[in-house]
Design a protein around this nucleic acid. Structure first.
Length: 276
DNA sequence: TTCCAGGTGCATA
DNA sequence: TATGCACATGGA
């Protein structure tokens, strides 16, 4: 147990498997900001502020149960890391991003966010999603909630362009006519291959976005999202290969049921440390 | 100015 | 089935 419930939030008592910067800056999530030395997170209509208090973190929130689940605080990351550390290539990435945890994110928000993420950079992805919150979300104490499915479905393509989505506006307009949040929830009972087929059939959703939604929303760990950073990493450390689906397959063969975790350590290391 | 970012869809062969 | 290119936008 790395945490304790407190009346105004959650105390992270063991920082060896929890580092808020690692968790939020490793590319899995866009609904956060750094405010001074603290971080705030605002998934769906929830809110928390995370303060580094030296030996511990304090997560200030009204939604204790929600964030225990969201941060996967009952997950055993010491075990995951010791298992993954058997792979030489993960040695440095695990040391570097020792405090990463894979969040348990809302399916609808994750799908919309990663459609926006395609061929885009993290700063601008956050900007676009914040535009959507401000224009369509509900005003909260701290800011705006993520727009509901109903609110987004009423928008036309031109509106999404005004939000800065560029050519992804058409994808959003279409996908909002292909799914409902209830459908996404029902997908959760599908085995990995059928889930992948259901997601990849959606507009604006290719292999990469599918893998991200499977990992960050459905928490399927036998997937390895391959983006431009992972391609660079792969070509540095493995044989030259530019076919993303082949890279993904090779890496899932290597890391098996822990592929999703391995991917996050490698992505964070590649992106923040190598920067090339 | 050109390149790049957590890529996808579509035409073509 | 596989390959190549167009697609918005803004920062480096």
């Amino acid at each position: 147990m790395i945490y304790a419930r407190e009346k105004d939030g959650i105390r992270i008592t063991d920082k060896s498997d929890f580092n808020i910067e690692h968790i939020l800056e490793c590319g899995q999530v866009f609904c956060y900001d750094k405010v001074g030395e603290d971080y705030i997170v605002f998934p769906v209509d929830k809110f928390a502020k995370i303060v580094d208090e030296g030996d511990s973190y304090k997560i200030y929130t009204k939604d204790v149960d929600y964030f225990i689940n969201w941060f996967d605080l009952d997950g055993d990351y010491s075990k995951i890391k010791s298992e993954l550390a058997k792979h030489e290539i993960l040695s440095k990435p695990i040391k570097f991003g020792y405090g990463i945890r894979i969040l348990k994110q809302d399916l609808f928000e994750t799908l919309i966010s990663f459609i926006v993420s395609a061929n885009n950079n993290i700063k601008r992805i956050k900007l676009i999603l914040n535009n959507l919150r401000k224009n369509l979300g509900k005003k909260q104490e701290y800011g705006y909630s993520f727009p509901t499915f109903q609110a987004l479905q009423k928008c036309d393509e031109d509106f999404f362009k005004k939000m800065g989505t560029g050519y992804r506006a058409g994808y959003l307009y279409k996908v909002l006519r292909e799914i409902t949040p209830e459908m996404l929830s029902a997908f959760a009972s599908l085995p990995t291959d059928k889930l992948r087929a259901s997601l990849i059939a959606l507009s604006g959703v290719g292999p990469k976005v599918t893998d991200c939604v499977m990992l960050f929303g459905y928490n399927r760990f036998d997937v390895f999202p391959v983006d431009t950073w992972i391609v660079k990493m792969y070509n540095m450390f493995y044989a030259p290969q530019d076919k993303r689906e082949q890279i993904a397959k090779n890496l899932v063969d290597e890391f098996g049921e822990l592929s999703g975790y391995a991917q996050q350590y490698l992505f964070y290391y590649q992106r923040s440390f190598i920067k090339k």
